[in-house]
Deep mutational scan, measured.
Amino acid sequence: HHHHHGSGALAALHAEGPLAGLPVTRSDARVLIFNEWEERKKSDPWLRLDMSDKAIFRRYPHLR
């Protein structure tokens, strides 16, 4: 159930192989992290948004 927010940013994801479903670039990863943060913020208003490279690598090590 993907609803768009204002920016309408869509992340490019790997379609197949071992990385299927994972973001292709760091900016794609940022979109995913932001979208998930927006969702989680509803139940956790104090949740901090962390889109640093460090956060991205921790989450998606293949982007190193």
Rank of each mutant, 00 (worst) to 15 (best):
H1E: 12
H2I: 14
H3Y: 11
H4F: 12
H4A: 12
H5A: 11
H5V: 13
G6E: 13
S7A: 12
S7Q: 12
G8P: 12
A9E: 12
A9N: 14
L10T: 15
L10H: 14
L10F: 10
A11P: 15
A11C: 05
A12L: 15
L13T: 09
H14V: 05
H14Q: 03
H14C: 05
E16I: 09
G17S: 02
G17V: 02
P18I: 07
P18C: 05
P18F: 05
P18Q: 06
L19W: 10
L19S: 06
L19E: 03
A20M: 12
G21Q: 07
P23L: 01
V24Q: 07
V24M: 14
R26F: 13
S27L: 15
D28Q: 04
D28W: 03
A29N: 00
A29I: 00
A29D: 00
A29H: 00
R30G: 04
V31N: 06
L32Y: 04
I33A: 02
I33K: 01
F34E: 03
N35C: 11
N35G: 07
N35A: 14
N35F: 15
E36L: 07
E36V: 04
E36Q: 06
W37Y: 09
E38R: 15
E38S: 13
E39C: 09
R40Q: 11
R40L: 14
K41N: 09
K41I: 13
K42W: 07
K42V: 10
S43H: 12
S43L: 14
S43Y: 15
D44V: 05
D44T: 06
D44L: 06
P45W: 05
W46L: 13
W46E: 11
L47S: 11
R48Y: 07
D50R: 06
D50W: 04
D50N: 07
D50P: 02
M51H: 03
M51P: 02
M51N: 05
D53I: 11
K54H: 10
A55N: 10
A55T: 08
I56G: 00
F57T: 07
R58S: 11
R58K: 14
R59E: 05
R59K: 11
Y60R: 00
Y60K: 00
H62S: 02
H62A: 15
H62C: 01
L63Q: 00
R64V: 08
R64A: 11
R64F: 10
R64I: 13
